[in-house]
Computed example of a mutant assay.
Amino acid sequence: MRNLDRTARSAATLVLGGIAVLGLSACGSKEAPRADLAAAQVTSIGVNSYLWRAALETVGFAPLLQADSAGGVIVTDWYANPQNPGERVKMTVTILDSDLRADALRVAASRQVNQGGNWVDAPVQAATVQKLEAIILTKARDLRRQAVAS
């Protein structure tokens, strides 16, 4: 009985050791799998590059005041739609993480309306900011899909 226990333990140790060696051998490869080239965590510029590119494309209609890829901050200057010159908006996009996640992105917007020649602060609908965040996230995911496919 004692020999049987010892034999079973030895067999179990060999099996577990073999599994561990096989698992670790996959980690030793010098080449990363192709999918890793477009992983959700791409940070060669300090923040997630897909979120960064998507944010720049999304707010690119407005003149940029600041674009800091290391800190992940994009600030636009005031933009007035030519079809509605009595209203203008200013946006700040902040990328908070190196992962491509919804909570890694924050958009803030300010809005002003012209009243008697003076610009007066006006509220921004929460849906507007949420829509901008959704557009940026969708573009970022599309950029990632394109990178994985190529």
Rank of each mutant, 00 (worst) to 15 (best):
R106A: 15
S49K: 09
M91N: 11
V148E: 12
A67D: 01
G72P: 00
G17L: 00
T128P: 00
P63F: 02
Q130F: 03
N114D: 12
L137I: 04
N3L: 11
A147Y: 07
V42W: 06
A55W: 00
R53H: 13
R6E: 08
Q83V: 14
Q112I: 04
D36K: 15
A55S: 14
G23Q: 07
F61S: 15
S150A: 13
S69N: 12
I135T: 14
V59L: 06
G117S: 01
T13E: 13
S10V: 07
S44A: 15
L105H: 07
T58W: 01
A122R: 00
D36P: 03
T13F: 12
R111I: 00
S25P: 10
V15Q: 10
A102P: 11
Q130L: 08
L24R: 12
D99E: 09
A35M: 02
Q41G: 03
V124D: 03
P33Y: 14
E133D: 05
S49G: 06
A134S: 11
A32T: 06
N114A: 03
S69L: 09
Q146S: 04
D68L: 02
V93Y: 03
A26G: 12
R88T: 04
G28W: 13
A40T: 14
T128C: 04
R144M: 08
A127D: 01
N81M: 13
E87W: 05
N48M: 05
S110G: 07
N81S: 12
S98L: 08
V47K: 14
S150N: 14
L96Y: 07
P63V: 03
V73E: 06
P33K: 15
Y79G: 02
V129K: 02
L14W: 03
P63D: 01
Q83W: 07
Q130N: 10
N48S: 08
I95M: 08
R141G: 08
A8Y: 04
V42M: 11
